[in-house]
Design a protein around this nucleic acid. Sequence first.
DNA 1: CTCCTTACCGTACACTGTATTGCGTGGATA
DNA 2: TATCCACGCAATACAGTGTACGGTAAGGAG
Lengths: 232, 232
Amino acid sequence: MVPVWERPEPRPRATPVPLSRAKIAETAIRLADAHGLDGLSVRRIAKELGVGPMRLYDYVTNRSELLDLMVDAVYAEIAEGGPHPGWRATVLAIVRRTRAAALDHEWFSDLLGGRPQLGPHALAVGESTAAALSQAPAVRDVDDLQRALGALNAFIIGALRREVTERRTARATGTELSAWQASLGPYLTRMLDTGRYPTIARLVVDGAHLDAEETFDHNLTTLLDGIAGQEG
Amino acid sequence: MVPVWERPEPRPRATPVPLSRAKIAETAIRLADAHGLDGLSVRRIAKELGVGPMRLYDYVTNRSELLDLMVDAVYAEIAEGGPHPGWRATVLAIVRRTRAAALDHEWFSDLLGGRPQLGPHALAVGESTAAALSQAPAVRDVDDLQRALGALNAFIIGALRREVTERRTARATGTELSAWQASLGPYLTRMLDTGRYPTIARLVVDGAHLDAEETFDHNLTTLLDGIAGQEG
DNA sequence: CTCCTTACCGTACACTGTATTGCGTGGATA
DNA sequence: TATCCACGCAATACAGTGTACGGTAAGGAG
C-alpha cells in the first residue's frame, strides 16, 4: 500500500470549495483540538466540510491515514523557524516547538510515537534534529547518532505524553487542590494511609507544584548533557 | 466516580466459572495479546467467557476501566521480584521487567502514559522506583525526586512506545530488508534521493542494525548517569 | 445533439460501547 | 413447607462508528 504522501491530489471538481488533503487535514485538526481524538469521526469531518462521508475516501484510504496527515501537518508547524548557532540551541528550539505543538494539539501526544513518522515534514524535523545531534562532540559514528536520536525521541514522546495526561486529569478533576482531593482523594488517601507507599505519599504531600515547563527543560538539559558528555 | 479498585467484587453466583474482575482482566489480556487492542471488544471478551456482553458491566463501568484493570494486572507482573542491592540495580531491574512486559503485551505500550496509573500494583511499582531513586546521591529533596522520576518515566514510556512501533512495522512489512525496501522503499528511497534529508539517509543506509535491547540499556544507563551525576 | 466516462453521493453492512427491560432462580421469611 | 421478593443474568435496542458498494448526474468528446 502506497503511503498518503505518495498519491497525487485528485483534480478538484467545480465545487464551491474544491476540497483537498490539506483542507481536510486542517478541519480535522480543528475538530480534534476542540473535541479530542475520540470525538473525531470521518462523518463529523465530512459534515463540517458540507460533504458526504465517502467523499473523504477519495483523498485518504483510511482513517489512520487521515491521522498521519494530521500529524504531518503539525510537524509542519514544528519545522518552521531557522537554524540556531550550535547544535544544542538547535535541538533545544526544535524540542520546545514540539512541546508547544503538543500543548496546542493535545491529541498530537496521543499519536506521537504510535506510528512511524514518514511524512515530508516529519522527515524534515527528523533531519534537522539528526543533523544537529551529529555535531555533538561525543557523537562520532552513525551508531552514536542513532542511539542519541533514539534517546531524544524517547524523551520527547514520553515527557509530552505524561504532561498532557496530567493536564487532562487536572482539567477533569478540577485544577483546585480541594476538588482533586475530593474526586480521587478518598481512594488515594486511603491507599496512601496504608503505609505501603511512603515515598509516593511524601511526593504527593510535600511535592511542591513544580512548574511543568521548568521540569521539562531541566530534564531535557540533563539528557543533552548526557548526549554531549560520554557516548564514547 | 469511584475508581475500579475501590468497588467490592460482586458476590459470585453459583455459575460454573464464577467470573471476577481478575478473570475478566486475564482473558482480556489474552485476547489483546493475540489480536491487539483494536481487536479487543467488550462483546468478544464476553463471548470468550461464555457470557452476555452486559455481564461485564457488573464488574466494570467502562471499557476504559477495563483497560485500567488490564494495565494494573501487567504492573503486577512487573512488581514481582525482590529488592536489589543499591538503588541503581533496583531501578535497572524494574525498568527491564517493564520492558519485558511491554514486549510480551505490546498493547501495554499503547496504554503506557495515557492515563494516570493509580492501581495498587502500579502504585507498588512506582513506590519501589521512587524509593530507589530517592537514594541516589544527587537526589536531595522532594523536588529532585519528582524530576528524576519524571525523567525516568518519560524515558520508559517513550522508549517502549518507539520500540514496539518499530517492531510492528517490521513485522507488517516483513523482517527481511528486501521486503522492507519493497514496501516502503519506493517512497522512502525517492524521498531520500531528493537530497533534502542527507543525515537521515546516512542513518538508513549506513545504520547497522543495532540490537534493540542493547540500545535500550545504553540509553537507560546514560539517563541513570545523569540522575546520579549532577541534579544539584 | 448525443454519448460516455468519471467524479460524486446515498445507502447499506457489520460492528462498536452501553441503557434498558424483562425473565427466572436463589435465598429469606411466614 | 409454601410463598414471595429481590437480585443475577440475558436479550433486546439504540446511537454511533469505519468503510464497501451501486447508482446518478454532470462534464467533455465526437
